[in-house]
Computed example of a mutant assay.
Amino acid sequence: MTIAIPVKTLSINPTIASLFANAKFFAYSRDGELGIEKMEEERGRDVARTLIAQNIDILITSQLGFKPFVLLKSYGIQIYFAGVEELTAADLLNQFHAGALVEVTPENFGTLLD
């Protein structure tokens, strides 16, 4: 399972980026290993296409536009709301594995992410 999180910096344990489309880096948890990669794309749908090409299974984010949301969901990617606090990637992964994050659906999208 691959989990992606938009983050602010290329550091050991970066904090989540507040805007999905403007994130310069993404943290990826692949088989329990956390790595950070630079994101070259700067538009929401282009970032979503890059994540799809990388075969992610789950996105954890605090903000996401409607068009990238629909695109990611059409590929079966689960999206979870990170909340409004500026947490680290490790903290968010721990919350995800503990079942503490809310999955974003078409029904709650407008309340959580828009």
Rank of each mutant, 00 (worst) to 15 (best):
R43V: 07
I56W: 10
R45N: 15
N55E: 15
F69A: 01
L64G: 02
V70E: 08
N55H: 15
L64D: 03
E40G: 10
Q54C: 08
D46V: 07
V47S: 11
V70T: 09
I60W: 03
K67F: 05
R43S: 11
R45G: 14
P68L: 10
T50S: 12
F66Y: 14
N55T: 09
T50E: 04
D46Y: 04
K67R: 05
E40N: 03
Q54M: 10
T50K: 06
F69Q: 08
G44N: 12
I60Q: 06
K38W: 06
G44W: 10
I60A: 07
D46L: 12
I60N: 07
K38E: 15
V70W: 01
L59R: 03
T61H: 04
Q63P: 00
L51T: 05
K38A: 15
F66G: 00
A53R: 12
R43I: 00
L64A: 09
Q63Y: 01
R43F: 01
E41H: 05
T50W: 07
E42F: 02
Q54I: 07
D46M: 01
K67W: 03
P68W: 11
V70Q: 05
Q54N: 15
S62G: 09
K38N: 14
T61K: 04
R43E: 10
T50Q: 07
Q63F: 10
F66N: 12
P68Y: 07
E42V: 01
I52F: 13
A48S: 12
R49M: 15
F69W: 00
A48E: 09
I58Y: 04
V47D: 09
E41P: 06
D46P: 02
M39F: 09
L59M: 05
I58P: 10
S62E: 09
P68Q: 10
T50Y: 08
I52M: 13
F69K: 04
N55Q: 11
R49A: 14
G65D: 12
A48G: 11
V70H: 03
P68K: 06
G65H: 02
T50F: 03
T50H: 08
S62Q: 11
P68N: 06
R43N: 10
N55P: 00
G44E: 12
E42I: 02
R49D: 15
G65M: 03
F66A: 12
K38Y: 12
A53Y: 13
A48K: 06
I52T: 14
M39K: 04
M39G: 06
D57C: 11
A53Q: 15
V70D: 07
T50N: 04
I56P: 09
L59I: 06
I52Q: 11
Q54A: 14
L51Q: 00
G65Q: 06
G65K: 03
F66K: 14
Q63W: 00
S62R: 14
E40P: 04
Q63E: 12
E40C: 02
V70M: 09
R49S: 13
S62T: 14
Q63I: 00
Q63C: 13
